[in-house]
Amino acid sequence: MHVTRGFKGKRRTDATDRARLPPGQYLTPEFPVLTAGPTIHTPLDRWKLALQNGGSLVATWTWAEFEALPQTDLQTDIHCVTQWSKFDTRWRGVTIDDIFRAADLAVPPTGYLMAHCDGGYTTNLLVSDLIDGRAMIATHYDGLPLLPSHGGPARLLLPHLYFWKSAKWVRRLAFRDKDDPGFWESRGYHLRGDPWREQRYHGDP
């Protein structure tokens, strides 16, 4: 660590907020949009969510079927690898626990999963990061249907990991035998991405 001559830091947050900010993050009231390509607009009548194990289909839901699953509200802080964090964001959606339950999956078949999205985006996930109420597929933000630019109609939400893991426009969750890297993970970003351990890039602890 090198002390920067003359740097005092004028945007310090108070102690309460600081305890909620992972290392290297700063607080923003905005909700920045970061996507590798154009925003995807998927009509609801063409939307389906699929759960796969290897090559075989475990379950699918149409939009109407998905909306009929139990709905959960979640208020949470989110942390982007580009250093902004936003507190107290409000989401509604279906927890991964409820999705597995609806698919009659008492025990997940493997420990790894790849999320596939419209537009070709993928991200790799540990099943342990998705269950026990830690993750959902969100369809509403701040009381309104999720905008396409923020991942609507439906995005993953795993707020305890950097936000690139909360994949926009998710359509397919596929169990895998191992933790193969997804889109950003194969381009220099960390396989898991825990903000509290500052796992931003390959090789970070």
């Binding site: 923003t28 905005e30 390509g37 154009p38 580009t82």
Partner: peptide
């Protein structure tokens, strides 16, 4: 694409 801010 690369989108900048507004992030404060």
């Amino acid at each position: 694409t690369e989108r900048f801010g507004p992030t404060g």
